[in-house]
């Protein structure tokens, strides 16, 4: 402790006592009295500084015990802060504007469904045009990707996304949007680090994890068939 010499046993004792106090307030969900909180904070700060200095003076091999004590002190500082934080968050949540869950859900359902209907129409047209089922499905995906990209470029897809939410994110048009939007935005950083790299900001993880999972599936199938 500052200017008072070190008394590790004393620090440990106070640590335990303080923890009891903190746990008590935590359970009650009450804030500490301002003066008490200030006093605890000050105490912790003093002890932390003292322990830090002691740690600096010790040889490397003798530090273990003191490092443990230091991290316990740091944990307690966090615990003390947490009481106030949690109480505040509990109060703030009550003030938050109501989420428009129902409206969002309906819009997501309708818009997502409609995009799939458009896909179904395309699919039927491609089949009529002579493509077999798989080809028609691929052609549908590619066409939807094209329109997703185009509407992003025209600045319309984000307007749709604003109210459709997941309804315009989850269809493959949303995948196209997730590629084009960052690429467009960072175009001014050039075609390599701007457009080229940013195309894969969100598509990158999608393709990465999709590929990895498909490989696992292939392997599992190979060894279990």
């Amino acid at each position: 402790m500052t200017g008072k010499g070190f008394d590790l046993e004393g620090i440990r004792e106070r640590l335990v006592k303080r923890q009891e106090l903190i746990d008590h307030y935590k359970e009650q969900g009450k804030n500490l009295d301002k003066n008490l909180e200030q006093q605890l904070k000050q105490e912790l700060q003093q002890e932390h500084q003292g322990v830090l200095l002691l740690e600096a003076q010790k040889e490397k091999d003798d530090r273990q015990e003191i490092v443990k004590l230091r991290s316990e002190l740091e944990q307690q500082q966090q615990d003390l802060l947490k009481i106030k934080q949690l109480n505040y968050q509990r109060m703030a949540v009550k003030m938050a504007p109501p989420m428009t869950v129902l409206r969002n859900a309906i819009l997501a359902f309708v818009v997502g469904g409609l995009i799939c209907v458009i896909g179904q129409v395309m699919f039927a047209l491609f089949q009529q045009g002579g493509l077999v089922e798989k080809e028609a499905s691929t052609a549908t995906s590619a066409t939807l990707v094209f329109f997703g990209a185009l509407f992003t470029g025209l600045g319309l897809y984000d307007e749709l996304g604003k109210f459709a939410g997941a309804g315009s994110i989850i269809p493959i048009t949303g995948f196209a949007n997730s590629m084009v939007a960052p690429a467009l935005e960072f175009k001014r950083e050039g075609f390599v680090y701007g457009v080229g790299a940013r195309l894969f900001t969100i598509a990158g993880p999608v393709i990465t994890y999709g590929t990895v999972v498909s490989i696992f599936i292939g392997l599992i199938y190979y060894f279990t068939k």
Binding site: V145, A149, L150, G155, A176, M179, K187
Partner: peptide
């Protein structure tokens, strides 16, 4: 398709 269309659109359009 996503890469090509993405690149083309990003080349010819600007963010609004």
């Amino acid at each position: 398709a996503a890469v090509v269309f993405g690149l083309v659109v990003a080349t010819f359009f600007n963010p609004k």
